[in-house]
């Protein structure tokens, strides 16, 4: 679900162009979630800021219910994420995993890897200057 929430909506639409028959139980709705932090990173919770989130619940013809909460305001993204969540509970799970989730996971890993590699190139390698009196 986290993978679907973080994925770019357009990319999910490209990987899942056709939607199976479904009944929308809670139409895609845009709202906010209050993001919390901890004092000192470890202490009491405090409210940091809200973020936009879109949620959706639907049921496939077979009865599987799919839930989605995705970052941002893309209703199509939430709808497709809920469809994938529902499909993962059906016989189509393996197919969806290979056709949608695996490419999304690979692309995300590549994006993160690239950023981590650029950060790693800025890691400081300290060396100590030779002090005059040691010579």
């Amino acid at each position: 679900m986290g993978l679907l929430a973080r994925a770019p909506g357009a990319r999910l639409a490209a990987l899942l162009p056709d939607l199976p028959a479904h009944e929308v139980l809670r139409p895609p709705e845009i709202g906010a979630v209050m993001v919390r932090g901890r004092v000192g990173g470890t202490g009491a919770a405090f409210n940091l800021s809200e973020m936009t989130v879109t949620r959706c619940v639907l049921r496939l013809g077979c009865g599987a219910v799919g839930h989605a909460h995705v970052q941002g305001r893309d209703k199509g993204h939430a709808l497709r994420a809920a469809v994938v969540d529902a499909l993962m509970q059906t016989g189509a799970a393996a197919e969806v995993r290979a056709g949608v989730l695996a490419p999304l996971a690979a692309e995300e890993a590549a994006r993160r890897g690239l950023r981590a590699a650029k950060a790693a190139a800025t890691k400081v390698e300290f060396f100590t200057m030779v002090r005059g009196e040691d010579q």
């Binding site: 709705e29 906010a32 979630v33 993001v35 919390r36 932090g37 470890t42 919770a45 940091l48 809200e50």
Partner: peptide, 23 residues
């Protein structure tokens, strides 16, 4: 704009110790 949004809830406090740091 944010006053027009329904509040879905509050998050679990974020784990900054698990941050994917760029700096």
């Amino acid at each position: 704009y944010r006053t027009t949004l329904p509040r879905f809830g509050g998050s679990v406090p974020v784990e900054t110790g698990q941050m994917a740091v760029v700096r």
